[in-house]
Design a binder for these strands. Structure first.
Length: 271
DNA sequence: AGTGCGGCCTGTCCGC
DNA sequence: TGCGGACAGGCCGCAC
């Protein structure tokens, strides 16, 4: 499942292969993603150069002179750079074929991802305009979380996963960051001190940054004719470890459901 | 406004 | 061994 670090690693992995390339055509084998792939995509992109690949939250933004391709990998999406004539496998839904006979190929078995086109400033697109600050950007801090959380009764975990509060913190990283900051995931967001939010914000930054650094070793996997990008394995302290001893105190890790999401925490360390 | 939840999908895992 | 069913999971969009 691509979380923010995987999306950032994907961005870095494909950038050298697509930036500056001219689009020859777009091949859509399966338009039924989360939203239908726009029929005008081929017309819009063909003949244009990809000028840059940016990221906002977990959205990838491929910029051209006339508009921006907005791409989300959903739960199961991946991008590879392949030879344009390589045979697509099952779930290879879309190719952006370049003049140099390479192609950017989207694979997404569960089709929770999306491919959209906008001619406006992409950050004003309805999917992006309401997003909170980037967790690795300058506007994200403990003080910011503290200010936004006053009066809020939602759980700390739901608060941290609310993309309007901070963009792109997924289920795994929310559990891990809360564990690192010793904050119980169901504690009301409005009842956490500024100092504890400072620790939490720093934990979010550190955990995401470490994961991106680890992803750097897999960059070459984004370019090959077969196989998938190898998502890196993280060292996880609590996620998926129900029943296992806490690394700090040995108490068995517990799992519960918060906002319909699996959540993991140490009942002794987190409060 | 804040909060909770339904729904979209398929691969994987479990029990029979 | 094969099969059906439950489940996971990002996140939008709706209902209250």
């Amino acid at each position: 499942m691509p979380e923010l670090p995987e999306v950032e690693t994907t961005r870095r992995g494909i950038s050298p292969w697509v930036v500056g390339q001219r689009v020859l055509r777009v091949v859509v084998r399966e338009p039924r993603l989360r939203w239908p792939v726009p029929a005008r995509l081929g017309r819009a992109l063909s003949g244009s150069c990809i000028e840059g690949v940016a990221r906002r939250a977990k959205y990838l933004l491929l910029g051209t002179a006339s508009g921006t391709l907005i791409l989300h990998l959903g739960m199961s999406g991946s991008l590879r750079v392949v030879s344009a004539n390589s045979v697509p496998r099952k779930h290879d839904h879309l190719d952006i074929v370049f003049v140099n006979q390479m192609a950017l190929r989207l694979r997404d078995p569960r089709r929770f991802g999306c491919v959209l086109w906008t001619t406006r400033d992409p950050v004003r697109h309805r999917l992006l305009r309401g997003l909170g600050p980037e967790p690795l950007g300058p506007d994200f801090s403990g003080e910011y979380l503290y200010d936004r959380s006053r009066g809020r009764r939602v759980s700390a975990k739901s608060f941290l996963m609310d993309s309007r509060i901070v963009a792109g913190v997924g289920n795994i990283y929310a559990s891990e960051a809360l564990f690192s900051a010793n904050i119980h995931p169901v504690r009301a967001a409005g009842r956490i001190s500024c100092g504890r939010y400072e620790v939490l914000a720093e934990a979010v930054r550190r955990i995401l940054s470490d994961a991106i650094t680890k992803g750097g070793t897999t960059l070459r996997d984004y370019v090959r004719s077969t196989g998938d990008p190898g998502y890196f394995s993280l060292h996880l302290n609590v996620y998926g470890r129900a029943g296992e001893p806490c690394a700090h105190c040995g108490t068995p890790i517990r799992s519960t459901t918060i906002g319909q999401r699996a959540s993991y925490y140490c009942p002794r360390c987190q409060h």
